[in-house]
Nucleic acid binder design. Structure first.
Length: 400
DNA sequence: AGGTATTCACATGAAACTATTCTCTGAGTTAGG
DNA sequence: TAACTCAGAGAATAGTTTCATGTGAATACCTGT
């Protein structure tokens, strides 16, 4: 036992690793140069340039699907901009990811977070929203400066908190005497701007920058660039990068996906003590990523939803196609055994539908004539995975 | 045989409740002047 | 005295339940031949 653990560790440290710098494959990695995004980058740079002369640049609205380099490009350009700041007045940037729960997903929290980023701690709760705007205002206007506000995943913020925030933020400029505020909104929701208040829309998207998906060739170049940093020489066999980029190109040209594939393929190869990554590992990586996605979804479901899923799996072990009523009966039993308050049938029906949306169950409404109308529930994942889900629910969540 | 009518077992919607989370207010506390 | 902290009230929100109504087709029940 001990020796085997020893050998795992010594393999890990001594054996020549496939990876040299795995960070280069992570999504937050900031490469020295950005590949195949010249057009939007130049665009952004041109728009932001005036602030080097102390003028206020236009607000920018950047949009494009996930993994098209929006955040990367914006951060890169802003970073370069900061480097070029001479004595011509100061430039500050504040970046917030609005998707972060509990940090910036309401109006109050967002502004509070902004204040914090600007170096002023404010109470997490207790102040009127108007007060916090005041504080924010004072912070900005404290000296002559150009502040660039980067709001990543801005759509989630608006969806949760309404577009009033943007209206307030864009209006702040009129009240500022010394400082100037520029907003860069980033979203991957292409139809996001449609639902906005026209005033907000026009002021936020003074300039729009669209990020189109990468095609397979571009993805290949990106992967090649990153893999040179990430992997040891000779660790990549022929065709691996091509395969990753082709797979990711099918998924609407998502670079994040491509990098994940490559990284996971590498991890799999490394774990198997192999010296090179082959296309076989990419296939395995593809499976693993899908599996992880579903597992994560299962894990993060609320208890009740898990109980419903558990009940459904339990019945599916002996029966292929099952109905809502059967699941509900089983579910009630499970709740009783676990001392969990059980929900009404109406709700359980909705939960089953939700599990269907997640791609764990396959639900279809059918009518069985005289014997009623119900959802026909089948597993939407391979039996093996279903087993894994059952194990996780059974062990980690004590349904067993 | 052919045509209605029933009936089952939920689906689907809307309104009503509830519990939780936010926001706001004012009282109490602190610290600096 | 201004700034801050904090508990508690009221508002907003998410999660559920209750009530009401809708659905599709296998079966039951007629009807006239």
């Amino acid at each position: 036992m001990q020796t085997s653990i020893q050998s795992i560790f010594s393999n890990y440290t001594k054996g020549k690793s496939i990876f040299v710098n795995k960070d280069a494959l992570s999504t937050s990695y900031m490469p020295g140069s950005v590949t195949h995004r010249d057009e939007p980058m130049n665009n952004i740079a041109n728009i932001l340039a005036p602030c080097l002369r102390g003028e206020r640049p236009s607000n920018i609205f950047a949009y494009g699907k996930t993994g098209t380099g929006k955040t990367l490009c914006v951060n890169y350009v802003v970073g370069e901009l900061l480097k070029n700041t001479g004595q011509n007045g100061s430039i500050r940037t504040v970046a917030v990811n609005c998707k972060m729960r509990k940090i910036a997903d309401t109006e109050y929290r967002l502004v509070a977070q902004l204040c914090k980023e600007l170096g002023k701690q404010v109470p997490a709760t207790g102040l009127p929203t108007s007060k916090i705007y005041e504080i924010f205002n004072d912070l900005l206007d404290g000296k002559k400066q150009n502040v660039i506000l980067v709001l990543d995943e801005i759509d989630t913020l608006i969806k949760k908190a309404g577009d009033e925030i943007l209206y307030n933020l864009t209006r702040i400029n009129q009240e500022l005497k010394q400082a100037k505020l520029t907003i860069i909104g980033i979203t991957n929701n292409l139809s996001f701007a449609e639902g906005l208040d026209p005033r907000v829309k026009s002021s936020l998207s003074e300039e729009e920058v669209f990020f189109k998906p990468y095609d397979a060739l571009e993805l290949r170049d990106i992967l090649q660039q990153r893999s040179q940093i990430a992997f040891a020489r000779g660790a990549l066999s022929e065709g691996v990068v091509e395969k990753c980029s082709a797979l990711a190109a099918q998924e609407h040209g998502d670079a994040r996906r491509a990098l994940d594939l490559l990284r996971v393929a590498g991890e799999i190869a490394e774990r198997n003590n192999e010296t090179a990554i082959t296309e076989k590992h990419v296939d395995l990586a593809q499976d693993k990523i899908n599996l992880d996605k579903i597992m994560e979804a299962v894990r993060t479901q609320p208890k009740q939803s898990q109980a419903v899923l558990w009940s459904a799996i339990k019945i599916m072990e002996v029966k292929k196609e099952i109905a809502t009523g059967e699941v509900y009966e089983q579910y009630k039993k499970v709740c009783k055994k676990r001392g969990l308050a059980s929900l009404g049938q109406r709700r359980v029906s909705d939960l089953i539908t939700e599990l269907g949306m997640l791609g764990i169950l396959n639900t279809k409404i059918i009518s069985k004539g005289r014997y009623g109308r119900t959802k026909e529930i089948k597993p939407a994942v391979p039996a093996q995975l279903l087993d894994d889900i059952k194990t996780v629910l059974g062990k980690d969540f004590y349904f067993e």
